[in-house]
Design a protein around this nucleic acid. Structure first.
Lengths: 76, 76
DNA sequence: GTGTGACTCCAAGTCCGTC
DNA sequence: GGACGGACTTGGAGTCACA
């Protein structure tokens, strides 16, 4: 299920994710492939519609070459 | 269900959490109350047996007066 | 290349308890 | 105060088709 009531924390995380992804010049599709995730799932993360767990954050962080902590900078 | 195969990322997070909690001088029970979480759940987090979501991290971070990013420092 | 709704499956998170 | 377990409900993980 998607997060209907989008929380600002998830929006902020999604923006961070999108920024990091673009910096490295990947498409959602390419990132999804490298993170071994579905591209629709990655898209949902960027739009703040998902509330991922630490382990999911870890899978996303690795191909972006950032830490989980960096992905969550400014999240409150 | 509890996480049987404890991942090092979750162990690291659990240690961070325990350190922050003790610094502020709260019991697991008191923290759970302030975070509006179950006391058994907070214990499980500290032991690295749980894989929390961003929103759960946020609830824990608030009473500890730290950021989610700080809670996940060193997690990889 | 991305957004979105709908779906299944199983883990996140709750609530009770004992030691 | 903290570790741990059983049983339960909710919601995240993961996937697909189609726009």
């Amino acid at each position: 299920m998607r997060v209907d009531n989008k929380h600002s924390a998830l929006i902020t995380f999604g923006e961070n994710l999108r920024n990091f992804r673009k910096e490295i010049g990947l498409s959602q599709e390419e990132l999804a492939l490298q993170a071994d995730l579905d591209r629709a799932y990655v898209g949902g993360l960027e739009r703040g519609e998902r509330n991922p767990t630490i382990m999911s954050l870890l899978r996303i962080a690795k191909p972006l070459e950032v830490t989980v902590s960096e992905l969550l900078e400014g999240v409150k």
